[in-house]
């Protein structure tokens, strides 16, 4: 029993130490951020890598999430004869919760894992050490553009996910189960306020910061072995997913 408690305490202490190191890493990234403004091409390239290359998976998932939400919502609302508010309900759920959270989970799985493994491989093959020896700070040259690229791409991906998902809701709600389109769109417009859209985008940005930081930190500090890269990639996806869900609860509690 004592051993188990000791393990739990040790594990909590390790997690806290990792969190502290991650915050220090974030501090170094933020301190170096003004330098990135002078080289926007590096950041734009990473927005392409993290954002444009994730578009297909984001759009596909957005469409199917929207369609499933519509089916489920219609089934539920038709029992209380309130199908007309399907558009409003689905749009609110997608904008405030599902959009940012699911985009972040997909981002962690696609772009986050790619970032971590790329940086881990650079560490294992001495590319980061070679940069240091060329008097180039790899944190500024490699880690920072990737971090900023992820942070900037996430809100854009969130917005695209929400838009495509609403299109999916409309496909099922209006085209398939024949809810009146005028009622569908007008209910949605009256229910969704600008503050709801801001909430979604703020969440997208916060999740973007968390997921990109975790991916860059894990990859940059990966053990220089095949196993080390694998562990960094797995930890990126797992920690990002858990962090997204915890942050979502905190942000929702504050924004209600």
């Amino acid at each position: 029993m004592n051993g188990m408690i000791g393990d739990i305490v040790g594990s909590a202490r390790d997690s806290l130490a990792t969190f502290g190191r991650m915050m220090m890493f974030l501090g170094r990234l933020l301190a170096a951020t003004p330098a990135a403004v002078l080289r926007p091409r590096l950041v734009v390239h990473q927005i392409y890598n993290a954002g444009a290359l994730s578009l297909l998976i984001i759009m596909t998932c957005g469409l199917f999430v929207g369609m499933v939400l519509a089916l489920l919502g219609y089934d539920l609302l038709s029992r209380v004869a309130s199908e007309d508010i399907l558009g409003a309900g689905a749009a609110l759920a997608l904008t405030k919760q599902l959009g940012p959270v699911l985009t972040a989970l997909l981002f962690a799985g696609r772009a986050g894992s790619a970032l971590a493994s790329e940086l881990g491989l650079m560490r294992a093959t001495d590319q980061l050490a070679a940069m240091e020896m060329m008097a180039v700070d790899p944190l500024r040259r490699v880690a920072l553009p990737r971090f900023l690229g992820g942070v900037l791409a996430m809100p854009l991906l969130t917005a695209i996910f929400i838009a495509i998902a609403i299109f999916g809701v409309q496909l099922v709600g209006v085209q398939q189960v024949k809810i009146d389109p005028g009622s569908f769109w007008s209910q949605m417009r009256s229910a969704v306020e600008l503050a709801d859209i801001y909430e979604g985008l703020i969440k997208g940005t916060v999740f973007g910061i968390a997921c990109s930081l975790i991916a860059v930190y894990e990859g940059y500090n990966a053990a220089p072995t095949a196993e080390g890269i694998g562990r960094a990639t797995t930890r990126t996806v797992v920690v990002s997913s858990v962090a997204t869900l915890i942050l979502n609860f905190i942000l929702t509690a504050f924004m209600l």
Binding site: L121, M122, T125, Q127, A129, M133
Partner: peptide, 9 residues
């Protein structure tokens, strides 16, 4: 000069 070259891939 690194043992493995350490070229940027």
């Amino acid at each position: 000069l690194f043992q493995n070259g350490a070229l940027l891939t």
